[in-house]
Design a protein around this nucleic acid. Structure first.
Length: 1095
RNA sequence: GGGCUUAUAGCUCAGCUGGUUAGAGCGCAUCUCUGAUAAGGAUGAGGUCCGUGGUUCGAGUCCACGUAGGCCCA
């Protein structure tokens, strides 16, 4: 075996597939697990991926991070669990299954049968977990794929049962209410998404109703609503404290309050005029002003601010009915502490505040400036009433008919126009109605049946979060990256409400809550407990997973009251599923000692947005409740993947990139590089152009490697086969080794601190140093024919550097580094034969870092760069030779270094000689400037004063002393060289550079002979270019004719041999017949025409 | 409305506790190499560091106010 030659052109994607095969055949991953099986444990906890669709490029970011840190830890000998997780339960899966079935409602699911539906959900998850597994493997994600956890598993679900049971024992589980969109015909609730689909233009009766104020004779507020049925359940009235209200006196002497600007406001004027969202035949709406005038006129008595109305109490239109009088709301759904209040007690004018988008709840224009709030009949109303601590009245049943207790309304459908009419008549009879109108508006409908939706109060189950401080104290134990994550989590914990854990769906955790006829409930904590309590249906459940519908069959006997109870139909919030993972996957309930070995996790990483109140929250909540400990030590959050322009990727927008396509087009090493170099705080703009940018870097790495392989294979280089005497290493050898060791050290830090983006920035700089300095300046050592020790040293140096580099990169680029490793180490006895991923992470050898040398080479690079800058400034191209570079050195070591590098300088700058000088004046004018930063530290507020000393110093003397390593001359404030910055301004016609212990200056004057030499080289290049354009072979000989000036003729004559050799010219003739190629170029305002003929 | 956060080159972003001429990559322009070559390299143009005040010897950086965006909450 020896090192194979590698083609500079490489198909990275093809290589990735070959390496995947290699790993699988060679069982590389299994070997890694085996190798570290006794190593110190490092616990990574995988956040489960929703196994509902193929994986996207956004998942690949997180998965790359997960993989690379695990690989890094593995290289350091750690033992890992490598357990991947799949998130299985929840509405998203249901929606996809419904799509497949072509159905869209809960009703249809029930018609199909819950068992069938749930089984389809399971199948879908199983299918896509397989797909995602294959995709992850393609990405190079090394996991124990036979051992993934699924949140739908029994252990996961029962673990949550145990958790909920414990909460219940602490009295933290309670039944509350929420108000959701509801279809009476389907008898089901609707999601927010479905509502948006089903909006439809409808005409409702808009009613203006009087609410008499209490304690104010004959004074009323006027409310307006398009859902008269909700008046039955009025709780409160909201105003806007920022707008003004007019107190008006109508003709009959009664007083009304309405928003001042609403009086003359022409409602829906635009809609009517443009007939947009307007129903034919509906008359124009009247202004309040008109309505009052039609009733005999009115006058404004005074105008007051809304603030003054807050706190007034009023009489509701249905206060005589039982629901309004019942303490605790009607019917009582809530077990919380509102037992002593009835709806009537809540009839108060309140401040409406803002809605979720920051808009005022009560606005000017529409309505009357008073909004009637029915906490049991509207989502927003419900929130506000809950906020105010008001009771709720829920007037309807599942069919959206009035329940008992509502007098003439009971049994009527609330969406039936007849019902509205009956309510209106009743209000009129009782003198509460001011006016009725037809009001067209867009209103949510059941998109399927076309029925109007209503808002219905439903039972929901909550965890009382009054123990949030327990979670908050745990948050501070965690290392949050980026660290603002901590504040974000605290912010959420401070502001969150109780945790609603129920969902009225089918596929999910079966909440282990059984209710009893006396209104009590019992939480079951395990399968065993369920079996013990079961009195019915166990045989139908046994053998099935704890899901609906099977678990619903089981009826239990209450352990205390002995009553028979039924499970609630709800399933659990899916974040419970993911939050229990630090317990369920590592056997908290079965094998505590195993659990203790792996808890808490050392590391988790997830996409930030949303998780503060989802996964992070559920993890923290569950863990702090069960153990009062953080479930993980470090959390790395990353932002989102967007398209190249920064827009959201959407299937419909056509800008989505599929993982599979991206993997095969750009290659996963490129993808992983892209993800890894990204600052995790910023969104990643993903696209093929971006990938090409990264691919260039990868090609650069590959070129270094293929250069090495090409020559190493020619010379049959074998690492460590010869003894090397350290002093034989060249300066550049030592330099690149220093740089390489530095990289090892910083890489380790970068990985340990989870900031791999910094690593890649360092690597990119290192690649540049290696490629453009070390290799470019050392090429000749590899080319030369003799196999001497210098050549061997060059090989061994480059080998060591490449080996460390690819090891450092192997967690990020597992494929390409594997190929490189297997090739270059094939004869290296110190390395394993299997895989780079079985090798140890390179150590940094501090003895090999020579900081002085690094500084020197940096100076050299700086010299050459500034030389080039001078050329550009003087508009002298590199092809034009210049005479000299003047150098001042006071240090033998540096002198020898520069002498050693003379060849480099001559070559890079295209100059004739390097001159050594010791006269500072020759380089330009010196000035001394204060080094503010240092002086501030040293002198503090007296810095101003100390700066005066600078003018007492002679810049020339200071510079000489500094260059000689001496202290600077004595001065009043005892300034040292660190307090000063020496500024060197070059003389005319040259450019100077002042380094730590050297000064250089480039002479930019062009003598005549130099100019001519430049001209000749220009001419040669032009002819070479023509040869290329003419498609001549490299070794074709030619004849030239041209209208050369005398000057050119002379130069060519003087350098004939050189010229003819360079362009492979046999003869220069005056006239050329049948030339093969003609062209011309400009030279000092002369057009030179040249003809070439191939021999 | 409250909280958090961002604003720097055409684009995407760096810029540590205030310090001297504000950087990188891409793009663009010009040049260059041609024995790693469908590569590589150099140089340059391009900035009111969102605005206005303030603190300071000194502000992209700190403070206040404002403007515009993003996120979260109610």
């Amino acid at each position: 075996m020896s090192i194979k030659k590698e083609n500079p052109k490489v198909d990275f994607v093809k290589n990735e597939h070959e390496i995947l095969d290699y790993w699988s055949k060679n069982k590389t991953f299994e070997k890694l697990v085996e190798k570290n099986s006794n190593g110190p444990k490092w616990s990574f906890l995988d956040g489960p991926i929703t196994a509902n669709n193929p994986m996207g490029v956004h998942h690949a970011w997180g998965r790359t991070l997960k993989d690379l840190y695990q690989r890094y830890k593995s290289m350091n000998g750690h033992q890992l669990r490598y357990q991947n997780g799949f998130d299985c339960q929840g509405l998203w899966v249901e929606i996809e299954v419904e799509k497949e079935l072509g159905i869209k409602s809960k009703k249809e699911v029930e018609d199909l049968g819950i068992e069938k539906f749930v089984n389809l959900c399971k199948e879908r998850v199983e299918k896509f977990s397989e797909v995602q597994k294959d995709q992850s493997i393609r990405l190079g994600y090394w996991m124990d794929w036979d051992n993934s956890y699924f949140t739908m598993s029994e252990e996961n679900n029962y673990a949550i049962w145990a958790f909920l049971k414990k909460l219940h024992e602490d009295g933290k589980i309670y039944r509350g209410t929420d108000v959701v969109p509801w279809s009476g015909r389907s008898g089901t609730s609707y999601s927010q998404m479905e509502i948006i689909e089903g909006r439809k233009l409808t005409v409702h009766k808009g009613v203006f109703v009087k609410f008499p104020l209490k304690d104010k004779e004959n004074e009323n507020i006027l409310i307006w609503t398009t859902t008269p049925w909700t008046l039955s359940s009025n709780i409160a009235v909201a105003v806007n404290k920022k707008i003004n209200y007019a107190k008006i006196k109508a003709n009959d002497g009664s007083i009304y309050y309405v928003a001042e600007t609403n009086l003359k406001y022409q409602r829906l004027n635009k809609e009517f005029a443009e007939k947009k969202n307007w129903v034919d035949g509906v008359p124009k709406l009247k202004t309040l002003d008109q309505i009052f005038k039609e009733r005999g006129g009115y006058e404004i008595i005074e105008v007051i601010n809304g603030k003054k109305l807050i706190g007034l109490t009023y009489q509701g239109p249905f206060d005589h009915l039982e629901p309004q009088r019942t303490k605790g709301g009607y019917p009582i759904h809530d077990t919380s502490n509102l037992q002593d209040k009835s709806a009537i007690d809540c009839h108060i004018i309140i401040d409406g505040g803002k809605d979720s988008e920051g808009n005022d709840m009560v606005v000017e224009g529409e309505g009357t400036g008073f909004v009637h709030m029915a906490g049991g009949c509207g989502a927003i109303d419900n929130k506000i009433c809950k906020r105010e601590g008001f009771v709720e009245i829920s007037p309807i049943d599942n069919q959206a008919n009035f329940i008992q207790g509502f007098d003439f309304m009971s049994g009527l459908s609330v969406t039936d126009p007849e019902t509205a009419q009956k309510i209106i008549s009743n209000l009129k009879e009782r003198g509460l109605l001011l006016y009725v109108e037809d009001y067209p508006h867009i209103y949510p409908h059941c998109w399927r049946s076309g029925d109007e939706l209503v808002f219905k109060q439903v039972d929901e189950w909550y965890i009382n979060m009054d123990w949030r401080n327990k979670i908050k104290s745990v948050v501070d134990e965690i290392n949050w990256i980026p660290n603002w994550g901590r504040d974000r989590e605290h912010d959420w914990l401070d502001n969150m409400g109780d945790w609603m854990i129920s969902k009225k769906r089918f596929w999910g955790l079966a909440l282990p809550i059984w209710t009893f006829e006396d209104g009590t409930f019992h939480v079951v904590g395990s399968k065993e407990e369920l079996k013990e309590l079961a009195v019915e249906g166990w045989e139908k459940f046994d053998g099935n997973t704890p899901h609906r519908p099977w678990v619903d069959y089981v009826k239990i006997k209450h352990p205390k009251s002995g009553l028979i109870g039924t499970r609630i139909e709800d399933v659990g919030n899916p974040w419970l599923d993911a939050g229990i993972v630090p317990f369920s996957t590592i056997k908290y309930f079965e094998d505590k000692s195993y659990w203790e070995e792996w808890f808490p996790a050392d590391f988790i990483t997830e996409c930030f947005p949303g998780q503060f109140r989802n996964w992070f929250y559920s993890l923290l909540a569950m863990s702090s409740f069960l153990e009062e400990k953080a479930p993980f030590k470090t959390l790395l959050g990353h932002a989102l993947v967007k398209d190249e322009k920064g827009d959201e990727m959407h299937k419909s927008a056509g800008n989505a990139i599929w993982f599979d396509d991206a993997a095969e087009k750009m290659g996963v090493d490129v993808m992983r590089w892209m993800y890894s170099k990204q600052n995790v705080e910023n969104n990643l703009l993903f696209g093929y152009d971006k990938a090409d940018e990264v691919r260039k870097k990868l090609i650069s790495l590959w070129n270094i490697y293929s250069f090495f392989c090409t020559y190493a294979s020619l010379d049959k280089f074998s690492p460590h086969s010869q003894k090397i005497i350290p002093k034989d290493l060249t300066l550049l050898d030592n330099w690149i080794i220093s740089k390489s060791q530095q990289l090892n050290a910083s890489a380790k830090l970068n990985y340990e601190n989870f900031e791999v983006d910094k690593l890649l920035k360092n690597v990119e700089t290192f690649l540049d140093d290696l490629s453009n300095w070390y290799i470019r300046r050392n090429r000749r050592r590899f080319w030369k024919s003799e196999n001497d020790s210098d050549k061997y040293i060059a090989y061994q140096t480059l080998y060591d550097v490449i080996l460390d580099l690819i090891k450092v990169l192997s967690p990020v680029l597992p494929f390409v580094t594997e190929r490189m490793y297997l090739n270059i180490t094939s004869t290296d006895k110190n390395e394993n034969k299997d895989s780079i991923h079985l090798s140890d992470f390179p150590k940094c050898d501090d003895d090999k870092i020579n900081n002085e040398l690094i500084e020197k080479v940096d100076s050299l690079k700086k010299v050459i760069e500034s030389g080039r800058a001078v050329r550009k400034k003087a508009n002298i191209k590199v092809r034009q030779p210049l005479q000299s570079l003047r150098v001042l050195l006071n240090n033998d070591e540096i002198t020898s270094f520069i002498k050693d590098q003379e060849e480099t300088i001559l070559d890079e700058l295209n100059i004739k000689e390097v001159l050594f000088s010791d006269e500072v004046k020759e380089f330009g004018t010196l000035t001394l400037k204060p080094n503010f930063k240092n002086m501030k530290m040293k002198f503090g507020d007296e810095m101003q004063d100390a700066m005066k000393s600078i003018s007492d110093l002679d810049p020339l003397k200071v510079t000489k002393n500094v260059l000689n390593g001496l202290a600077i001359p004595k001065n009043e404030h005892e300034l040292t060289k660190d307090d000063l910055i020496i500024d060197l301004k070059a003389n005319e016609g040259s450019e100077s550079f002042l380094g730590n212990d050297l000064i250089v200056s480039l002479d930019t004057t062009i003598s005549d002979s130099l100019r001519l030499e430049g001209v000749l080289r220009d001419l040669i290049r032009q002819i070479q270019l023509m040869r290329k354009e003419a498609n001549f072979e490299i070794d074709d000989r030619i004849i030239i004719s041209a209208n050369f000036s005398d000057e050119l003729k002379n130069i060519i004559e003087e350098n004939k041999e050189y010229f003819m050799n360079e362009v492979l010219c046999k003869d220069i003739v005056a006239n050329l017949e049948n030339s093969d190629y003609n062209s011309s170029f400009k030279y000092e305002n002369n057009e030179i025409e040249i003809s070439l003929k191939k021999l």
